[in-house]
């Protein structure tokens, strides 16, 4: 192991310990609420989001013709990212009647608008790939 790698790992350990001590010494951060949230953070992506993503990807790969497959998988991935970041806004639990300028938009509508754009792009990309796959089938490959 090179010196650089040893230094990176040692520095990383020190920085983690600083963070952990910081958490433990903070009166406004309770130990159990923190550990619970950290645990959820560790598993939600691996055990909840990722299996769904893989299932959607596998279904798309199995069921769709090749020209449709990649655009649909790309569309699912972008939609998942947008849905994830907008979920707390769509649920709207952060709304406060004394603060009308906080979360001022119609977020379900906003999410639908963004998804409509994403899937319009999927349609355009699919049509393009369909036309290209047909034309490449008609002209025999020269290579």
């Amino acid at each position: 192991m090179t010196l650089l790698r040893r230094l990176l790992i040692a520095a990383g350990l020190v920085v983690i310990v600083i963070g952990a001590i910081g958490v433990l010494r903070s009166a406004s951060v309770g130990f159990w609420p923190y550990v619970r949230f950290l645990f959820v953070s560790a598993v939600y992506a691996d055990l909840l989001v990722m299996p769904l993503v893989l299932l959607a990807g596998v279904l798309a790969a199995r069921l769709l013709p090749p020209w449709l497959r990649v655009p649909v998988q790309a569309g699912l991935y972008v939609s998942a990212a947008v849905a994830f970041i907008s979920l707390p806004l769509v649920l709207g639990y952060g709304r406060d009647s004394s603060l009308p300028s906080a979360l001022p938009r119609d977020y379900p509508r906003g999410l639908l608008i963004v998804l409509a754009f994403v899937w319009a792009a999927v349609v355009v990309a699919s049509v393009w790939r369909f036309v290209r796959s047909r034309s490449s089938r008609r002209t025999p490959a020269s290579t």
Binding site: A11, G12, V15, I18, G19, G22, S26, S28, V29
Partner: peptide, 17 residues
């Protein structure tokens, strides 16, 4: 269930490490 800024700050150290 905890004060956001303090937890976000110290966890950034853990993430950086």
């Amino acid at each position: 269930g905890f004060f956001f800024t303090v937890a976000h700050f110290w966890t950034a150290w853990i993430a950086a490490g």
